[in-house]
Amino acid sequence: MEVRTIKVFTTVDNINLHTQVVDMSMTYGQQFGPTYLDGADVTKIKPHNSHEGKTFYVLPNDDTLRVEAFEYYHTTDPSFLGRYMSALNHTKKWKYPQVNGLTSIKWADNNCYLATALLTLQQIELKFNPPALQDAYYRARAGEAANFCALILAYCNKTVGELGDVRETMSYLFQHANLDSCKRVLNVVCKTCGQQQTTLKGVEAVMYMGTLSYEQFKKGVQIPCTCGKQATKYLVQQESPFVMMSAPPAQYELKHGTFTCASEYTGNYQCGHYKHITSKETLYCIDGALLTKSSEYKGPITDVFYKENSYTTTIK
Rank of each mutant, 00 (worst) to 15 (best):
E2H: 09
E2Y: 09
V3F: 14
I6S: 06
K7A: 13
F9I: 09
V12M: 09
V12R: 08
D13P: 07
N14E: 15
N14P: 06
I15M: 10
I15Y: 10
N16C: 07
L17Y: 09
T19E: 15
Q20L: 08
V21D: 14
D23S: 13
M24S: 13
M24F: 10
S25R: 12
M26P: 06
T27H: 11
Y28W: 11
G29R: 06
Q30V: 12
Q31S: 13
F32E: 05
G33R: 05
G33H: 05
G33E: 05
P34R: 10
P34S: 12
T35H: 00
T35D: 06
Y36W: 15
D38P: 06
G39E: 11
A40Y: 14
A40G: 13
V42W: 13
V42N: 07
T43E: 13
T43L: 06
H48E: 14
H48V: 13
H48F: 12
N49Y: 13
N49S: 13
N49V: 13
H51T: 04
E52F: 11
E52C: 11
G53N: 15
F56Q: 05
V58W: 05
V58S: 07
P60G: 07
N61V: 10
N61M: 13
D62F: 06
D62A: 08
D63Y: 08
D63H: 08
R66T: 10
V67H: 14
V67S: 14
E68M: 06
A69Y: 10
F70A: 11
E71G: 06
Y72D: 06
H74F: 06
H74R: 10
T76Q: 13
T76N: 09
D77L: 05
S79Q: 15
F80Q: 04
G82D: 15
G82F: 13
G82K: 13
R83Q: 08
Y84D: 04
Y84C: 06
M85H: 09
S86W: 12
A87P: 04
L88C: 05
L88V: 06
N89G: 12
T91L: 05
T91D: 04
K92G: 06
W94I: 03
K95Q: 15
K95V: 15
Y96S: 04
P97R: 09
G101E: 05
L102S: 06
L102R: 05
T103H: 06
S104P: 02
S104E: 05
S104T: 11
W107T: 02
W107K: 04
D109Y: 03
N110V: 03
N111V: 01
C112T: 03
Y113A: 05
Y113R: 07
L114T: 03
A115M: 06
A115C: 14
A117L: 04
A117T: 09
L118Y: 06
T120S: 10
Q122P: 03
Q122V: 03
Q123I: 05
L126E: 02
K127D: 11
P130V: 08
P130Q: 03
P130H: 04
P131I: 03
P131Y: 03
L133T: 04
Q134S: 10
D135A: 09
A136G: 09
A136R: 02
A136D: 04
A136Q: 10
Y138H: 14
R139I: 08
A140R: 01
R141T: 10
R141I: 10
G143F: 01
G143C: 03
G143E: 03
A146C: 07
N147P: 13
F148W: 03
L151K: 04
I152C: 07
I152E: 00
I152T: 09
L153K: 05
L153F: 09
Y155W: 05
Y155I: 04
C156T: 10
N157P: 02
K158R: 07
T159C: 14
T159I: 08
V160S: 03
G161L: 01
G161K: 05
G161Q: 05
G164H: 01
G164I: 01
G164P: 00
D165R: 00
V166M: 08
E168P: 03
S171G: 09
Y172T: 12
Y172I: 14
L173S: 01
L173T: 04
Q175L: 08
A177D: 00
L179Y: 00
D180K: 09
S181W: 10
S181A: 15
L186D: 07
L186I: 13
L186E: 15
N187Y: 06
V188W: 07
V189C: 11
C190K: 01
K191S: 13
K191E: 15
T192R: 12
C193F: 01
C193T: 02
G194F: 05
T198Q: 14
T198M: 14
T198H: 14
T199Y: 07
T199D: 05
L200G: 02
L200A: 10
G202V: 01
G202R: 05
A205S: 08
A205N: 00
A205W: 01
V206M: 03
M207T: 12
Y208N: 08
Y208R: 02
M209S: 14
M209Q: 15
T211Y: 04
T211V: 10
L212A: 04
L212N: 03
L212K: 02
S213G: 04
S213C: 08
S213W: 01
E215Y: 03
Q216D: 14
F217Q: 01
F217H: 03
K218V: 06
K219C: 10
G220E: 05
G220F: 02
V221R: 04
V221E: 06
Q222H: 09
P224D: 11
P224H: 12
C225V: 01
T226P: 13
T226D: 10
G228E: 03
G228I: 01
G228V: 01
Q230M: 14
Q230D: 10
A231K: 05
T232F: 09
K233G: 10
Y234G: 01
V236M: 11
Q237D: 07
Q238E: 00
Q238N: 02
E239P: 01
E239G: 02
E239N: 09
S240P: 01
P241F: 02
P241S: 08
V243W: 01
M244G: 00
M245P: 00
S246T: 00
A247D: 04
A250Y: 08
Q251F: 14
E253Y: 09
E253W: 07
L254V: 02
L254S: 00
G257D: 12
T258L: 07
F259N: 00
F259C: 00
T260F: 07
T260Y: 07
C261A: 05
E264T: 07
Y265V: 00
Y265F: 15
T266K: 07
T266N: 09
G267L: 07
G267K: 07
N268C: 10
Q270F: 06
Q270A: 15
G272P: 01
G272A: 00
Y274T: 00
K275I: 07
I277L: 07
T278M: 11
T278I: 11
T278F: 12
S279L: 00
K280R: 14
K280Y: 08
E281N: 08
L283M: 12
I286L: 07
D287E: 03
D287W: 01
G288Y: 00
A289L: 07
A289D: 14
T292Q: 11
K293D: 10
S294Y: 14
S294H: 15
Y297A: 00
Y297F: 11
Y297S: 02
P300T: 14
D303E: 02
D303F: 00
V304M: 03
Y306A: 00
Y306C: 00
K307N: 13
N309P: 15
S310Q: 15
T312C: 10
T314M: 14
T314L: 15
T314F: 14
T314W: 13
I315S: 15
I315Y: 15
I315C: 14
I315A: 15
